[in-house]
């Protein structure tokens, strides 16, 4: 999966900045659909396995909605945005 390192870095930075625990993000992500298991999320957050594009976008959306509450404008890039960034 060519975007794995960028995806992992983007999600890890977002999780760190948000202050979410794994459980907190898992609950938030549950509101955006998609069956992400807690253990899978823990693996993605620790970098043990990459997120799929669908997982990445759900987690990014959950993080960005959280950041929107804090007045920030979508700091976590979507999968499509990561793909469009110059290498």
């Amino acid at each position: 999966m060519p975007l794995s390192p960028e995806s992992t870095a983007a999600l890890q930075q977002g999780i760190l900045a948000s202050g979410y625990t794994i459980t907190g993000l898992w609950v938030a992500a549950a509101g955006f659909g998609g069956p992400i298991r807690w253990a899978d999320l823990a693996d993605i957050a620790s970098g043990d396995r990459p997120a799929t594009p669908a997982e990445h976008n759900i987690l990014a959306a959950a993080l960005n909605d959280h950041f929107a509450d804090l007045g920030h404008d979508h700091p976590v890039a979507s999968w499509q945005e990561l793909a469009s960034f110059p290498a």
Binding site: F32, G33, A54, A61, N64, D65, A68, H74, S78, Q80
Partner: peptide, 20 residues
């Protein structure tokens, strides 16, 4: 379904509104 979610993501970013 995934494409529909992507459309929501893009609209959310474009308008700087929460996806929900």
């Amino acid at each position: 379904e995934d494409t529909a979610f992507d459309l929501l993501v893009k609209a959310s970013q474009r308008e700087n509104l929460k996806l929900r």
